[in-house]
């Protein structure tokens, strides 16, 4: 019998929210993931590790759903999550997906495009997360991002 939603781990919520078999976005799981990550002290750190792993999935639909979770949480989960996403520890994982030197040659095009889009939106929406701007500028300089 499945544990009641309240006690389910962040991992089970992200697995349900990014399941490649989902016919459409699982907004309830996405919402629950956002709420739960904010409740635990280590929530933002664990959430970014889980998201990085999903975003690096070779399965396009799984990675795109993970990016939707990331975008939703960046809009709803507040400062603690922003500062965790705004660390190179997480940004480097996104960079690996778009960079040909790492996963870029195998990663799905749609996923790479979405990563660049969300990073760009954060440079506008979160100007005080300066590392995001640094990472984005570096990608532009290296020609990984062609605007």
């Amino acid at each position: 019998m499945a544990a009641p939603p309240e006690e389910e781990s962040l991992e089970s919520h992200i697995n349900r929210a990014t399941n490649p078999l989902n016919r459409e976005l699982e907004w309830e799981s996405i919402q629950t993931f956002c709420e739960k990550l904010n409740k635990d002290l280590e929530g933002p750190q664990l959430a970014t590790r889980l998201l990085a792993h999903k975003i690096q999935s070779p399965q396009e639909w799984e990675a795109l759903q993970a990016l939707t979770v990331l975008e939703t949480c960046m809009k709803n989960c507040g400062k603690r999550f922003h500062s965790e996403v705004g660390k190179f520890r997480f940004l480097n994982e996104l960079i690996k997906v778009v960079s040909p030197k790492y996963l870029g040659t195998r990663a799905p095009e749609k996923v790479k495009l979405k990563i660049v889009e969300v990073m760009y939106s954060w440079t506008i929406g979160l100007p005080d997360e300066t590392k995001i701007a640094d990472a984005y500028q570096m990608l532009k300089k290296q020609g990984v991002v062609k605007m």
Binding site: L41, K87, F88, R89, L91, S99, Y102, K131, D134, L139
Partner: peptide, 15 residues
Amino acid sequence: ATSFPDDSDEDLLKV
């Protein structure tokens, strides 16, 4: 006791 959130980080990946 609430531990202070860890704000250690890595360097930016060079591509």
